[in-house]
Design a binder for these strands. Structure first.
Ligand SMILES: [Mn+2]
Ligand SMILES: [Mn+2]
Ligand SMILES: [Zn+2]
Ligand SMILES: [Zn+2]
Lengths: 134, 134
DNA sequence: CTTTTGTGGAGAATCATTCTTACCTGTGAC
DNA sequence: GTCACAGGTAAGAATGATTCTCCACAAAAG
């Protein structure tokens, strides 16, 4: 953890290490509140404000990403910073990770050939809305 | 407008017609607040709460969509309900429409052949993050 | 050791969104 | 026409996520 924080240019404080560990250990796409609960299980003195501020700085330096969502009432964070896609279940509101290098290649090739007007793309993420089955 | 509302199963009240017209006339991906301002220009008695509730019911019946975004502090609405994609400018925070039937076909074909495990997709939307150029 | 700078905690403040409640409006029955 | 009823709306309060302010503390620098 210390190394990751240092590499990102952040001082490795106790709180930051805890918050980063909590983020990594939580499955799915946790909210700041969920990260806070996880942090509190270990050290009950860390404040929710610190979790918010720290997650923001993590996003800024690329240690985590925010998950895009259409109807979210609160932000969700993704500890997986590699390019991947998401399945949005319209029934359960779950956001499920979807990783497919073939798809990545397909999209990259598409835009390599036929570029965008007045726009330099940096990353692609496909949002697949639908329903979970059996 | 009346017909659209009726077809969607909503009574065509004065306020709903106004809100739908305002949504259609506003460029880009307006917030509820922006829709409210547009509505107020015509009829200054419509309340912001009504705009929120009405936009929600429009989303429910498919007259509009919410735009997914990672760091939004408020919801944005899209009067264009056809499947299309979005460019997210990380500099200006603009969300720009991107429509490309070839891309749609590519994605549809990809998932037609090689389906998803335990998930029935209904719609696809590609989020392209990057920066606007000249 | 002293100064400077960064970081964190507590709680207030802000802002988008939702809820409550009472009033109004259109509709159909009679 | 009157009446009853259902749905829709305005106003403002309430909620809840997020941000800010301010002060104490810790860590680095000199
Ligand atoms: Mn908490
Ligand atoms: Mn307003
Ligand atoms: Zn993810
Ligand atoms: Zn759009």
């Amino acid at each position: 953890m210390q190394q990751r924080l240092a590499a990102a240019g952040l001082r490795a404080t106790h709180q930051r290490i805890l918050i980063l560990e909590s983020l990594l250990v939580l499955p799915g796409h946790p909210t700041a509140e969920q990260v806070h609960r996880q942090v509190m299980a270990n050290t009950p003195t860390v404040s929710l404000g610190t979790v918010y501020k720290t997650l923001d700085s993590f996003v800024e330096v690329g240690l985590t990403k925010r998950v895009a969502s259409a109807d979210a009432q609160c932000r969700r964070y993704d500890s997986d910073c590699s390019e991947h896609h998401h399945l949005y279940c319209t029934d359960t509101k779950e956001i499920i990770d979807y990783c497919n290098p073939q798809l990545d290649a397909l999209i990259r090739d598409f835009f390599a050939k036929q570029g965008l007007e007045n726009f330099q793309p940096h990353s692609f993420s496909l949002h697949i809305a639908g329903t979970r089955v059996s």
